[in-house]
Computed example of a mutant assay.
Amino acid sequence: MSTETITRGIGRARRGVGNGGAGRPVQFKPSNSNRMPGHRSRSTTLLLFALPSLILLVLLNVYPVGYAGVQSARNGDLLSAGDFVGGQNYLTVLQQPVFWHAALFTLIFTLVGVFGSWAIGLALALLLRTRIPANGLFRVLLLLPWVVPIVVSATAWNWLVATPQSPLPVIANFFGLGNPLFLADPTLAQILVCVYKVWISFPFMMMMMTSALASVDTNVYEASKVDGAGPWQTFRLITLPMISRTTYISWILMTIFCVNDFPTIFLLTGGGPVQSTQTLVVMAYVTVFQNYQTGPGVAIAFLMTLVLVIISVVLYRQIRKVNIE
Results as ranks from 00 to 15, higher is better:
residue 206 M to D: 06
residue 227 D to A: 03
residue 206 M to H: 02
residue 197 K to M: 13
residue 212 A to Q: 06
residue 222 E to A: 11
residue 209 M to S: 12
residue 270 G to I: 04
residue 239 T to Y: 02
residue 278 Q to E: 10
residue 255 T to R: 14
residue 237 L to P: 01
residue 231 P to N: 02
residue 247 T to S: 14
residue 265 I to G: 08
residue 272 G to N: 09
residue 279 T to K: 09
residue 258 C to G: 08
residue 230 G to H: 11
residue 207 M to I: 15
residue 224 S to L: 00
residue 234 T to Q: 11
residue 243 I to L: 06
residue 265 I to C: 06
residue 270 G to F: 08
residue 212 A to D: 05
residue 275 Q to D: 12
residue 276 S to A: 12
residue 201 S to R: 13
residue 252 I to P: 07
residue 273 P to R: 08
residue 278 Q to F: 02
residue 216 V to L: 11
residue 227 D to M: 07
residue 250 S to N: 05
residue 267 L to Q: 04
residue 195 V to S: 14
residue 218 T to C: 11
residue 209 M to D: 06
residue 203 P to L: 03
residue 224 S to R: 14
residue 210 T to F: 02
residue 271 G to N: 04
residue 232 W to F: 13
residue 243 I to S: 13
residue 254 M to G: 02
residue 247 T to P: 03
residue 202 F to C: 02
residue 228 G to S: 14
residue 202 F to Q: 07
residue 218 T to H: 11
residue 251 W to F: 10
residue 215 S to N: 14
residue 190 Q to C: 02
residue 225 K to W: 01
residue 251 W to E: 08
residue 258 C to F: 14
residue 275 Q to H: 08
residue 273 P to G: 15
residue 249 I to D: 10
residue 270 G to E: 11
residue 204 F to D: 13
residue 280 L to P: 00
residue 236 R to D: 00
residue 276 S to R: 06
residue 267 L to P: 05
residue 272 G to I: 01
residue 262 F to I: 09
